[in-house]
């Protein structure tokens, strides 16, 4: 440990070795799999909504990776079947997430298909779930004296309704909801081997 270059070279080589196993090999396996027939690319509006989702940091509270029934009751909670790598073929950046301060959202479009529900919930989550700790997003909405033609108004309980005016969704809110409604991976599973099946021996199938 008295020589400069060997220390640096060996350190770099160890990292390169790890990179082959953690990044290159799984990448090759995932990227060569074909895209499931049931998975549609995002539309332009959905992509705009996705950018909104990314920029507001939704991923810090909402995961998008339902677990297998052997591991947890995600399916029973309506979060969808266990996802596989090929379900994310159009996701850039990926939004798998690491927290469930809120529920998993990979199939929220199938579970909560109502635009009105999402708009109300984004404007004030506590109008729907009084104990929710999700932030409200008033800046995605306009408060107007009355709605113009083409405006999407937000249904609100009386105590949340600003007096004498209506709440109208801005385009950011509509895009975001369009993205949420597009989250629907309920088509049949493709490439079931492209996920962590390490829990399979833990219990019977359901």
């Amino acid at each position: 440990m008295n020589r400069f270059a060997p220390l640096l070279l060996l350190s770099a080589a160890i990292l390169a070795f790890a990179t082959v196993f953690l990044v290159i090999l799984p990448g090759a396996e995932i990227r060569t799999a074909d895209i499931p027939a049931g998975l549609q690319p995002y539309t332009e509006q959905e992509l705009r909504g996705r950018t909104e989702y990314v920029s507001l940091g939704c991923v810090y509270c909402h995961s998008q990776q339902p677990r297998a029934p052997e591991q947890g009751p995600d399916g029973a909670r309506g979060w969808g079947r266990p996802s596989t790598a090929s379900d994310y073929a159009y996701d850039r950046p990926h939004l798998l997430g690491t927290m469930r301060t809120g529920p998993a959202l990979l199939n929220i479009g199938a579970r909560m298909p109502s635009q009105a529900w999402h708009l109300t919930h984004l404007y004030q989550p506590r109008a729907i779930n009084p104990t929710s700790i999700m932030p409200n997003y008033p800046f995605l909405f306009d408060v107007k004296a009355q709605a113009n033609a083409g405006d999407v108004t937000v249904d609100l309980p009386p105590e949340e309704q600003p007096a004498g005016s209506v709440v109208v969704a801005r385009s950011e809110a509509l895009d975001l909801v369009a993205y949420l409604l597009s989250l629907d991976r309920t088509y049949p599973v493709a490439h079931p081997e492209l996920r962590d099946n390490g829990y399979a021996d833990k219990g019977a199938t359901q």
Binding site: Q65, L96, G198, Y199
Partner: peptide
């Protein structure tokens, strides 16, 4: 990514 959508072997490794 334990329990997530990446191949079992890399998770186990």
């Amino acid at each position: 990514l334990i329990g997530g959508p990446v191949p079992t072997w890399v998770v186990t490794l």
